[in-house]
Design a protein around this nucleic acid. Structure first.
Lengths: 221, 221
DNA sequence: ATAATATTTTAGGTTTGTCTAAATTTATTT
DNA sequence: AAATAAATTTAGACAAACCTAAAATATTAT
């Protein structure tokens, strides 16, 4: 696989993410995302087209080719592995990892990334709960669900809390649950809707249906 | 501290290393080191001079200013910490670490580097035995000596083997000693000049004076 | 000391990635 | 279906980092 500039990589990655929502991406959308002017986008689209990384007809928007998709997944793999490293090994918090990973992701040694993957124990999801592509670019689809609906024994990551009252935050703090916390559901009790969950290496503990209702998690499927 | 481009950083680092030998560095020397043309060097020297990173009068060569030196040591700190990480955690061999670290060194988040340093246990020397500057740019001077002359209990790194006969290589292989091996001297015996050394986490073992004579190590002083 | 040689700098060009302003195409309104 | 508005592309410019070829300076050898 060829090598791409930091700039090219950032464009490819941004298109990949915007594509998830729409089918095809427009010049203005991408300009907004990358904080660049529309004219710059057009320039780069021409270049990426000649490199066969995307399909593009003037005025008609663009979407990644097969090849472009594969390149995007390679970049995302690097990004998410570094995020995992930063959170798990260097103890960055979930909200600090992204910015640094934005830079590390452009160091494109295959050997480095595969060895990093191994060192980290082949994690499936990054600290935000988004799945990490494998070396061939295969990726689980990401799903966000209410904690109530998380299947048993499925590793997931807290991605959102609906209620933002001081009361719920106090409880979450006490239970050491926050955005980025990894957890899995062990048991559910029909009697009161409470469930046993496990986070980190501590023993499982109980959360009420009330609380679970407000916690959303992401996991790969 | 300001931020510099990858290119600027490579120039600064190269000047720092060349300065160790000579006092001042010439255009051609630097051009050879960076595999660039002399004209490119002059361009960059003008730029770095306006940024007050070096002293430079046309035709008179150049050397880093105080500020330039500090910047250089920051880059070298990053480079050597990543080398240590690659060798120690990702199990790269001593001769593979340099190239990858050349890229990682340009990711300049202070927090990243200080946390990496802590994660690695504040190592003093990189896998080639060269000392790692501290966060303020203080650095131990590096010394290369024959293993015979290494002080007791001083962590050092094998950096060179004189004799290259198959016989010595066989012995080194058996004792698991190679370039990059970390070791310290525990005891010496006057009777036959043999010494006890410790490498890695295995128990200490003996090497003959014959062998030690041919091994050179680097350590910080 | 001067000619020959080597080194360094200048002048001007190239590529990459960005920009502004003007022109073109597409979409929306009335 | 025009007219207007919005989106997109083109044309031309700029900075960074490199290059080649020519000019300027320094070094050396006779």
């Amino acid at each position: 696989m060829l090598n791409f500039s930091t700039s090219e990589e950032n464009y490819i990655k941004a298109i990949y993410h915007l594509q998830r929502a729409d089918g095809t991406v427009t010049t203005n959308e991408l300009a907004r995302e990358l904080k660049a002017k529309p004219a710059s986008i057009t320039d780069m689209m021409k270049k990426l087209k000649t490199k066969k990384l995307l399909h593009y007809q003037p005025y008609q928007g663009f979407r990644l080719s097969q090849e472009g998709n594969k390149v995007a997944l390679g970049i995302i793999r690097r990004h998410r592995l570094w995020e995992y490293f930063l959170a798990e090994k260097l103890k960055f918090t979930w909200d600090e990892v992204h910015e640094v990973a934005e830079h590390l992701e452009h160091v494109s040694s295959k050997k480095l990334i595969d060895k990093l993957d191994e060192f980290l124990g082949f994690p499936r999801v990054d600290p935000h709960g988004d799945p990490i592509p494998d070396p061939d670019g295969k990726i689980e689809s990401s799903r966000q669900v209410c904690l109530l609906d998380l299947p048993f024994n499925k590793m997931a990551v807290v991605s959102h809390v609906s209620d933002q009252s001081t009361e719920i935050l106090e409880l979450l703090k006490h239970k050491k649950i926050g955005i980025g916390t990894k957890l899995e559901v062990k048991k559910k009790f029909d009697f009161d809707g409470s469930m046993e969950i496990k986070t980190g290496r501590q023993p499982a503990f109980t959360v009420s249906e009330q609380l679970a209702k407000n916690i959303f998690v992401k996991y790969g499927t």
